[in-house]
Amino acid sequence: MEKWQDNRAWFLVLPVFVIVAFSAIIPLLTVINYSVQDIFGPGQRVFVGAEWFKEVLGDKRLHAALWRQFLFSGLVLLIEIPLGIIIALTMPKKGWGASASLVTLALPLLIPWNVIGTIWIIFTRPDIGLFGATINKLGMSFDHTASSLDAWVTLMLMEVWHWTPLVALLAYAGLRAIPEAYYQAAKVDGASSWSVFRHIQLPKMRGVLTIAVLLRFMDSFLIYAEPFVLTGGGPGNSTTFLSIYLVKIAVGQFDLGPAAAFSLIYFLIILLFSWLFYQALQNAGKGEG
């Protein structure tokens, strides 16, 4: 299965290229522009070179937010990817059960992000929330506004609840794309369900899982609205993730220079890790197809 070599394929890509470049290039230039200047007001700006980058890289609170962010995204990937695959494997292949599962699965994904936070505030409130009240009835104290651990637990629950369906939907669509003949061949060979998973389903899901891992990594690394609504970054700074800190600098202190430098570093970190994940997943499938 060899790809055709033809530069005219660019004509097929052109509409996408134009539409994305149109949206992407101007913001990028604006951010680079801000990141090397000190802006006092309209028409009053001084070139400061790498000043803001030095300031941002030396910021202790930013380092703390960065580690928090890595912990968060790491946990997200470790929980959501396996759980999503398990859900996809347990879903019925056809019939009303498949339809019902698909629609049910999609529900959390369809709620606007600011509303997600609000739902979880209601859900976890000790007085009127089902979760909060139940936990308190069991004799454990639970308050995500006072304890950092509780805040993290709530955030992780919310995140897993919200986004595992995305992984499951992708994995499910990937599973459905495997021709029946593969399963029949495995049946003839008397393969166990584990080896069917390991040697047929998992390699065939590589494409969709690559997208799932990249999407979950990027979006969890950029998470803003949900923790902002639920915890506001607290208690203390315990759930202040990178984007919350960024908005604090940009809007709260109106330091556009450092905020722009911060955005660029932020972007480069995500770029680097996405690239590593992408390469790792591409290579993982070599020779298994």
Binding site: W4, D6, A9, V16, V31, M218, L222
Partner: peptide, 25 residues
Amino acid sequence: RYRFLGDKQVFFWLLTNRMAPAAVF
């Protein structure tokens, strides 16, 4: 289906547009 000049780079570049904080835009 095709291999063409800059295909891999453009493919990955597309996704990089999801990698910046929305506030930037």
